[in-house]
Amino acid sequence: MSAKQYKTVGEEAWKNNVEKVNAELFIFTYGSLVVQLVKDYEDYTAVNKQLDKMGYNIGVRLIDDVLARTGLEKCADFHSTAEVISKVGFKVFLNITPSVQNWSSDGKEFSLIIDDNPLNDFCELPPRAVQDGLWYSNVFCGVIRGALEMMQMQTEVYFVRDVLHGADVSEIRVKLVKVLDEEVPANDE
């Protein structure tokens, strides 16, 4: 399937198959979640980690939901995986389509460029948080990592830059570590 077809799939799913919630409610809920984590952990690195973990647990479930909604098959290569993440994944759940850019030469790393992250609305980070490197939307990284792991791809996903840190766009780097083998039953004879 080409990138264009994925776009149609994502748009169709967004239009017909998604129950929407109020965006502001969602954004504020997420914001208060992060604030609570900051209060609890008192350390921005730990908050990043926790957000990633929460995202991971979301991702491992969300992938089944995406597949059930869209009926997509397994991707043939990592390039189409990138297209699906941006044009179907982000589209269906957040109604944004980050652009896929900066492919590494071996085709195992790419960046998702988000210029309109809805979670950033109404959000301003205190200087301390920027300085200590809080990735406010780090939950995305976990979601992508979790979802890809269920598709047998072990990945590293991390924020490179963020609008909230003063960059002009947000960038998430996705790196394919390895493709996991299917599990086989333990031989118990």
Binding site: N57, V60, R61, D64, D65, A68, R69, G71
Partner: peptide, 17 residues
């Protein structure tokens, strides 16, 4: 898979995945 497994198992917060 789509309408029963995903709906009642995957989306069930009590089902510990």
């Amino acid at each position: 898979y789509r309408n029963i497994y995903v709906e009642y198992v995957v989306k069930n917060p009590l089902f510990h995945i």
